[in-house]
Write a protein that binds this DNA or RNA. Structure first.
Lengths: 246, 246
DNA sequence: TTTTGTGGTTGACGTGGATCAACGGAGCAT
DNA sequence: ATGCTCCGTTGATCCACGTCAACCACAAAA
């Protein structure tokens, strides 16, 4: 909390009802009346510079965060120094849900670029969710969606080979960019090969080699962090076909 | 739903307040008054025989389930026939939370032994959570706990080697048996080597070999599905030390 | 009793991805 | 420009785990 940035009256005025992330964020599916009441909820905005922590594992849990601009990674550090990236989050997505269970954050949230989040005090959220019908349901959906997504990652880590994992990752990124109105075929990754590797359970060299292989095969065009998908169907085929079953 | 077993008036009478799983289940941390109201929630019990489905991926979501007796696995089937076990659930744990987000179950839940669950209609739960303070908070905690647990599995799948994974699995089982009043050192696994392997991202042969190795090293005694842990500290040391860093 | 089927163990061998190492390019400060 | 640092690529080698296969234990059926 020490890193909180002072907020002006003006910045407080722009809340959920005016936010262009409405369709992706917590308010999705709520009525106009209900959304107006959300303004009570978003107490502050907070800007986080690239590489800075939004929160750290062990921090007391007080709020969840909706990403208004930018992107984040979450990771956990094992006792022996190994790092595991547990997710990448984009605008409209929620951070901090892991903290509810123990009232302590269980992972680190780090900005991949200069970013801004809406701070949602958790006690206020519970209070308001009791009154505003749609809010409670929507919040449950957000949590459930996180569980489903994690199961997807478990499947990826547990039963896919390196190239399948990277193909699935690229398709997932493409789909999320699309949902935000960006191109499905061309985008800029904000994370390093090492972070992608950690997320996918691979070493950075393996990630790099898979990128090169996809490029050689004409599936994508890679230039550093800039990706252009040339053959979406080809990528999809990769994750559906188990090579040993062919 | 077609597999539902008719319930007698008598069976309905025994609800949360009298249930000995209180401390593990949804009511944990709620006041006596609050728990009494939960009885409205548990509409029915349902018995599931070994190997039968409680629900399947694609089934419409209507209720969540608290395990009253027995145990389950959840899994997803990939298009190409691969199966990935996403979790094992024991008494007092919840099933079905994944269904909230899309109003459709996203995985299969299968009984590992003859089991019984409490059926908690989801719409009633939302309704009651609005009135009973502790229930809403407790339900959020249950969902959050699932997210944290999934992150733990992702860490395991993404950054541990085979023996570390199995050691972590055994310690986790031991800890959960302990929480239920059973021995921490001696227990009966209800799942096959193949299911353990699927959960841990390993082949059944690798699981079997790791069991044998642990036995040779005096860490455990294995006899089929019956496990006796002889050296808990030794197992813990396995998951804290990264071999390549020694 | 034998038969059949399912689950578990163990050995021999192959391979996908980790590891180790060298190098190249981009961004940034001086 | 020059040097520095971080990031990414690529090659050579290694090994943990997968694959393939044989065999065994136990349980249920004949």
């Amino acid at each position: 909390m020490k890193a909180a940035v002072p907020i002006t009256i003006a910045s407080l005025k722009v809340a959920c009802a005016q936010c262009n992330l409405l369709e992706l964020c917590l308010p999705f599916g709520m009525s106009e009346n209900e959304i107006d009441r959300l303004d009570e909820l978003v107490g502050a905005r907070r800007k986080i510079k690239r590489q800075q922590h939004l929160y750290r594992a062990g921090d007391p849990f007080e709020a969840i965060y909706a990403i208004r601009a930018g992107s984040f990674k979450t990771d956990v550090l094992l006792e022996d120094g190994r790092e595991q990236v547990t997710g990448f989050q984009m605008t409209g997505e929620m951070l901090g849900l892991d903290g509810i269970s123990t009232e302590t954050h269980s992972c680190n949230a780090i900005a991949l670029e200069d970013s801004e989040v809406c701070v949602i005090a958790y006690d206020k959220l519970e209070e308001l969710a009791r009154v505003v019908d749609g809010l409670q349901h929507q919040f449950h959906k957000v949590m459930s969606r996180e569980i489903v997504r994690d199961h997807g990652v478990m499947t990826l880590l547990g039963s896919m080979r390196a190239e399948e994992r990277l193909a699935a990752f690229l398709l997932n990124m493409s789909q999320r960019f699309t949902a935000r109105g960006f191109s499905a075929a061309e985008f800029h990754l904000r994370m390093t090969r090492e972070e992608i590797g950690s997320y996918l359970g691979l070493k950075l060299e393996t990630v790099s080699r898979a990128f090169s292989k996809f490029q050689d095969e004409g599936l994508i065009a890679v230039q550093q962090k800039h990706i252009r998908i040339l053959d979406i169907a080809g990528l999809k085929k990769l994750i559906q076909h188990h090579p040993s079953r062919c």
